[in-house]
């Protein structure tokens, strides 16, 4: 899911809605370019029982977060 251009809290709003629409165990790939969200989205996802598989910086100002639906 490409969330470049999105800022908090919409980064997590859209991540959460996407996760709710998935089955447990499925993996969501989120692309972010809002630096603050690179910490807050994984933290919020963990708080809601999901597993963060990894956070990878792909460009100067772009990150990919992998989240397994809890």
């Amino acid at each position: 899911m490409d969330l470049t251009g999105e800022v908090c809290p919409m980064t997590f709003v859209k991540t959460k809605l996407a996760l709710e629409g998935m089955a447990p165990g499925q993996v969501l790939r989120v692309i972010l370019d809002f630096a603050e969200a690179v910490e807050s989205v994984p933290r919020s996802a963990r708080n809601e029982g999901h597993r963060v598989l990894g956070v990878v910086q792909t460009e100067d100002n772009q990150w990919t977060v992998l989240i397994r639906r809890g």
Partner: peptide
């Protein structure tokens, strides 16, 4: 900051009907 188009699709399609919000 510009918002992305709402037509963007989820990376992983839901197994059950999505609770969609515009």
């Amino acid at each position: 900051m510009d918002k992305k188009s709402s037509t963007r699709q989820q990376a992983t399609p839901p197994e059950r009907p999505a609770r969609t919000f515009d």
